[in-house]
Amino acid sequence: MIRAILLGLAALACLAGAAGLWLTRAHPVEAARFEGLTGDAEAGQTLFTAAGCASCHHAPDAEGDARLVLAGGQRFPSEFGTFVAPNISPDPDAGIGGWSLTDFASAVIRGVSPEGAHYYPAFPYTAYTRLEDQDVADLWAFLQTLPESDAQSIPHEVAFPFNIRRAVGAWKLLYLRNEWIRPAESTELERGRTLVEALAHCGECHTPRDALGGLRTGAWLAGAPNPSGDGTIPSLRPEDLDWSASDIAYYLESGFTPDFDSAGGHMAAVVANFAQLTAADREAVAAYVKALPPE
């Protein structure tokens, strides 16, 4: 996934010159939009778990409660260099404790830093961009309740030309969309869609990418090469996955497939998060997956 994104960025670095700096500038959210909102930390906790923020931002090898210390430091290697997740704990210096809600919203739904730079889409704001404003405020309120860490964020080890953040602006023009991908005809399907498309970013792993590293939404959840190079991430489309809705919900709860193999790879972290959600949420995701059309 990261490899394809970076190849895309290289091509777009050239394009950025042509498209003009104006088009590729950062678009933070307007301050007024979030001013009236008060976050609810309890609601934020569910969003945080479903979105898997800790899975990427806890310290490498953290276990148990230490996973709630968002010190950063996990490395996401690729052929072109390595991204390192930053400290997003409430520490005012090393983390993001000094940020405003508007700064946070710009990062999570627009992929823009407080200084106005573009974040790399290794941070899945491409999914989070579909969140409601209130959800963002709730997430922010929950993050304040977590422990501080004074661990300094480690710079990415990404070489020229992939280090040109401006190119991400051109990439976003093509791929940062906040429309929903699938229709949802019931309240349950709507909930499932929020979990799949906005929060748990299932598509980031299960959907193949085009030459520029953008998700091929036409092949939504149809399976993709594993970015770590180990095998293939399975398709969730009906012609490939014949599990019942309760099989899918049980897998998300326990990690067990219908023949009692047990989930591995990056899916293990997703299962650990979904085990903490409600049965209704797991069933909503299962309903969404069962409603996917054949490719």
């Binding site: 594993n226 180990d230 095998g231 293939t232 991430i233 399975p234 990690g255 047990s262 989930a263 591995g264 790879g265 293990a268 972290a269 299962v271 650990a272």
Partner: peptide, 10 residues
């Protein structure tokens, strides 16, 4: 899962 996570390919 803990073992598959680290030692088994998809």
């Amino acid at each position: 899962s803990a073992c598959h996570d680290e030692y088994r390919a998809s």
